[in-house]
C-alpha cells in the first residue's frame, strides 16, 4: 500500500487524482443538469419531485454509496487542488514586472485555483440551501417549492449564475486537461476532445444557469 500512497502523492500522481476525481464530478454534473432541466417542465414540479424522492430514498443503497463517494471525491479534489497550488506557488521566484502570459496560455488554465475556490464557496451555500435542508432536515415543503422560493431571491439567483460562469471557466480547461493528465493525447483525437470539452462544458453550465433565469423572470410571469 505504501507505494500507492506515494504514487498518488507524487506530483504526477496528485495531478492524476485531480483528473480522475474531476472526471467523476464532471459526470455527476451531466446527470445533475439533466435532472435540473425537469424543473422547466410546466407541471408544477411533479416530475422533479418524483425524481427527488427516488434519489433521496434511504433504501437506495447504491446511490447512497455513490453519494458518499461524490462527497469524498469533491473534498479530495478541493484539498488536493489547494495543495498542488500551494507547492507550485513555492516553486515560483519573485513575480515578473511584465508577464504576458495571455500570449502563451489560456486564461482559464491559469486561474483554476481561483475559479475552483469560488465554486467551492458556492457549493457550501448551495448544499446548505438544498441538500442539508431537504435531505437531512425537516423542511415542511417539497424540494420543488424550495427551489422556487430560493430562486425568487434575485441576489441568490445572480450569485448562482455567476458561479455557473466560473464553473464553465473551470470546466473548459478541466475537461481537456484531464485527458492530458491521463496521458491521453494524440493528434487524432486531442483537437476533438478540446472542442468537445468546450462545447459540453458551456452547455452544462448554461443548463444550470437557465434554472434561476427561468424562476426569476419566466416562471413568475406565467404565474400571475
Amino acid at each position: 500500500m505504501g507505494w500507492f500512497l506515494k504514487f498518488i502523492d507524487s506530483s504526477v500522481g496528485k495531478k492524476l487524482v485531480m483528473a480522475l476525481t474531476g472526471l467523476f464530478l464532471y459526470l455527476f454534473l451531466i446527470e445533475h443538469v439533466i435532472a435540473n432541466l425537469l424543473l422547466l417542465n410546466n407541471d408544477n414540479g411533479e416530475a422533479y419531485t418524483i425524481y427527488a424522492e427516488v434519489l433521496g430514498s434511504s433504501y437506495n443503497i447504491p446511490l447512497r454509496i455513490i453519494e458518499f463517494g461524490l462527497f469524498f471525491f469533491l473534498l479530495y479534489h478541493s484539498i488536493n487542488g489547494a495543495r498542488l497550488w500551494w507547492t507550485n506557488r513555492k516553486a515560483k521566484g519573485i513575480p515578473y514586472l511584465v508577464n504576458r502570459a495571455s500570449e502563451n496560455s489560456s486564461f482559464f488554465s491559469r486561474f483554476m485555483i481561483q475559479s475552483g475556490s469560488i465554486i467551492f464557496i458556492f457549493l457550501v451555500i448551495h448544499l446548505k440551501s438544498f441538500f442539508v435542508n431537504y435531505r437531512l432536515g425537516n423542511p415542511g415543503d417539497t424540494m420543488y417549492q424550495g427551489v422556487v422560493k430560493t430562486f425568487e431571491n434575485p441576489l441568490y439567483s445572480w450569485f448562482y449564475i455567476f458561479a455557473m460562469i466560473l464553473l464553465a471557466f473551470h470546466l473548459v480547461h478541466a475537461f481537456q486537461s484531464a485527458f492530458q493528465t491521463l496521458g491521453l493525447r494524440h493528434n487524432k483525437y486531442t483537437p476533438f476532445l478540446k472542442s468537445f470539452g468546450v462545447i459540453l462544458s458551456i452547455l452544462i453550465c448554461a443548463g444550470f444557469a437557465l434554472i434561476p433565469v427561468y424562476f426569476l423572470y419566466l416562471h413568475n410571469a406565467g404565474g400571475y
Binding site: K14, L16, S105, Q180
Partner: peptide, 30 residues
C-alpha cells in the same frame, strides 16, 4: 513545481517541443 497543463512551456519553447512529451511522461510514470 508540477505541471498543470497550461501549455505555456510548449508555446514558449524555442525548439517547439510538443505537449505530447508530457503526456508521454505521464504514461511512462503510470
Amino acid at each position: 513545481g508540477s505541471c498543470t497543463n497550461t501549455e505555456a512551456c510548449s508555446a514558449e519553447c524555442p525548439k517547439g517541443i510538443s505537449m505530447d512529451v508530457i503526456a508521454e511522461l505521464r504514461r511512462e510514470y503510470f
